[in-house]
């Protein structure tokens, strides 16, 4: 169960299109369960269930007909087809609308029909491109639970820009930006990595405005910042320290002595969202390639391919000559006999 994150235009959908064989990669290769998508597309594609972001469907068909068609396209054997269609209809819970035209279904149902299309044939790898976009909260939880349960016996690659969704469902997060890989890790590790500073969030009632002086008297404190003033007269501050020690105890006692009332005191935790933003922002801006550079790269690639071709040719010829040698040897042997 992997989550695939990235800002808009990062290349999530493009990557998924390449994995599913919709687009041919210009470089590199994709292997699904050992099958190269470019070289053995039939076998590789049979292992994949793909739910595209735009949920393309045939509006003139009913969900049942659509899923049956998808089953046929995916090569589900005729005997098992009916059973398989029923199973999938049940799995995504659209049995009640199975005979309505897809055209007349609501967005949530369409999304589920599209998901059903990906599930049919029980492929080992599921690739879901933003499966919960545009659903109401109830449907979102339903689809999420469904995806979670699918994760038990399928490999799922899920793209999303809803971070809470990814941190809830996925065990592993892949973050890309501008077509480049930024990070692969578990959501927890990513959060931990970005948690660099020891920061406290504190809400106080401080009519005499003593807080800044008071805080300065505590050792280890680096700085205090006012975040906002709340309408009920309280103020929220963030306090950062120089080391990793827990300052809460000390702050509590010192504030109490100075008659500053604490309404709230908590450690600021980095969420996946912060981690995400941090990673994306930290990615070094690469200077735009000039036209000459692009040309050069293309030339190099061409030459590389040419060389590869020639190498292959030479290899073939070598094999041929070896074979011929063996043949002549065998003939000679035969002649000797």
């Amino acid at each position: 169960m992997s989550g695939f994150l990235g800002p808009n235009g990062a290349g999530k959908t493009t990557t998924m299109s390449i994995i599913t064989g919709y687009i041919e990669p210009s470089q590199g290769k994709v292997e699904i369960n050992g099958y190269n998508v470019s070289k053995k597309p039939r076998k590789a594609k049979r292992e994949i269930g793909y739910m595209p972001e735009t949920t393309p469907l045939y509006n003139e068909l009913t969900p049942k007909e659509f899923i049956k068609y998808m089953a046929e396209l995916k090569g589900v054997p005729r005997k098992m087809r009916k059973q398989e269609v029923e199973r999938v209809l049940k799995a995504v819970n659209i049995e009640d609308v199975k005979n309505k035209l897809i055209r007349n279904l609501s967005r949530g149902y369409k999304q589920r029909v599209s998901l059903a299309g990906a599930l049919v044939g029980n492929p080992k790898v599921l690739i879901l491109d933003e499966p919960t976009v545009g659903l109401d909260p109830k449907q979102v939880t339903q689809i999420r639970d469904l995806i979670k349960s699918l994760g038990k016996n399928h490999t799922v690659l899920l793209s999303s820009h809803i971070l809470s969704e990814v941190s809830q469902i996925c065990k592993k997060v892949i973050i890309i930006n501008k077509g480049k890989l930024v990070a692969i890790d578990t959501p927890k590790n990513l959060e931990a990595k970005t948690e660099k500073e020891n920061v406290l969030l504190i809400t106080v009632e401080d009519p005499e405005n003593k807080i800044e002086d008071v805080v300065k008297s505590i050792s280890n404190i680096k700085e205090i910042k006012l975040i906002k003033e709340l309408p009920d007269g309280t103020k929220q501050y963030s306090i950062s320290s120089n080391d990793n020690s827990d300052m809460r105890k000390e702050i509590f006692s010192v504030f109490a002595k100075n008659e500053i009332t604490i309404f709230e005191l908590k450690k600021a935790e980095m969420s996946l969202e912060d981690a995400f933003l941090n990673l994306i922002d930290n990615q070094k801006e690469e200077p735009e390639k000039t036209k000459a550079e692009i040309k050069k790269e293309k030339k190099e690639l061409k030459e590389k391919r040419k060389k590869e071709k020639e190498d292959k040719k030479i290899e073939k010829q070598n094999k041929k000559t070896e074979k011929n040698k063996e043949k002549t040897k065998n003939k000679k042997k035969g002649g000797d006999k």
């Binding site: 064989g21 919709y22 594609k45 994949i48 793909y50 393309p56 396209l73 995916k74 090569g75």
Partner: peptide, 9 residues
């Protein structure tokens, strides 16, 4: 829907 056809086997 071209996606569905081209990503099928």
């Amino acid at each position: 829907t071209e996606t569905l056809l081209l990503t099928s086997s």
